[in-house]
Computed example of a mutant assay.
Amino acid sequence: MTTMTSERIEVRRAIAADPAKIFGVLCDPQGHVAIDSSGMLMSAEGDVVTAVGDTFVVHMDRDALHDLDLGLYDVTVTIETFVPDREISWKILGRIRPQIGHVYGYRLDAIDEGTMVTSFYDWSAIDPVWREAGIFPVISETALRATLGILARTVAPGLPRPEVAG
């Protein structure tokens, strides 16, 4: 299921893992790099986040999107929402001024099969300079959905796979 407004995208996927296991990946800077489908996140530095206001650094390369030539650069992820095993969101702070102000995050709801994971990307509160630039959304619905697929195989790698004829 996908929800999209003019300033927010949400995609959902049932994942066969408990919320705590998924939340653990989402709190780990290395987890962000491991599940990224955009190809922009190269590596990360910092401790596992445990509260609103915690930060870590992500080393980026926007060449994967092939839209802006920013070279290699760093951003700071700052946690905005932190509800253990239920919700996490963050803003990206980088070298660009004014700061953009977009938010990424996940909501986790326990279901019989594991967890319903909702990934969201919200640019409703971005700085007017960036709104006028007309570059949003930077990340597509397809990229959010692909990241959920990578998250699923990361937290539930032993799931049975269909037979391949061959």
Rank of each mutant, 00 (worst) to 15 (best):
A146M: 11
P162F: 02
P128F: 06
G105A: 07
D47P: 05
D28V: 04
I15Q: 01
M42V: 15
D127G: 07
L65D: 03
V117Y: 07
Y106V: 00
G94D: 13
L108S: 05
L108P: 04
F120C: 05
S6V: 09
R153N: 03
A44D: 02
G114V: 01
V58Q: 12
G134V: 11
H59I: 06
T142Y: 11
E7H: 13
A143D: 10
D54R: 10
S38D: 07
F120E: 05
R95T: 13
T154M: 01
G39C: 11
A146F: 04
T154N: 02
I35T: 13
R95V: 13
W123V: 08
R161Y: 02
T142D: 15
G71P: 02
F23C: 05
G149D: 11
H66R: 14
L159D: 07
H59G: 06
L148M: 02
E163F: 10
M1D: 13
I126N: 04
A133N: 12
P84A: 11
A64G: 05
V77N: 06
W130F: 12
D127I: 05
I100A: 13
W90P: 02
Q30P: 00
D47H: 11
T2K: 14
I35D: 05
Y121H: 12
A16P: 00
E80P: 00
D112E: 15
D85A: 07
L70K: 10
G71Q: 07
T3R: 14
D67I: 14
F56H: 09
Q99P: 04
Y106H: 11
V103H: 02
D63R: 13
E163D: 12
M42F: 04
V75W: 03
R95E: 14
R12W: 04
G158S: 08
G24S: 12
F136Q: 12
S43H: 12
L26A: 07
A64K: 04
F82I: 01
V52I: 14
A17G: 09
S119N: 13
T142E: 15
K21P: 00
M60A: 10
I15T: 06
V155A: 01
P29D: 05
P128C: 10
V138L: 14
M42N: 14
D67L: 15
D36N: 14
Y106A: 00
I135Y: 10
L68S: 13
K21L: 12
V155G: 01
L144K: 03
P137F: 13
T154C: 00
R95I: 11
A110I: 01
V83D: 14
V58I: 15
F136A: 10
K21I: 10
G166D: 09
I139Y: 12
P137E: 09
T55P: 06
V138S: 07
I79Q: 06
L148P: 01
T78P: 02
E7P: 00
E141A: 12
R13Y: 04
A14K: 08
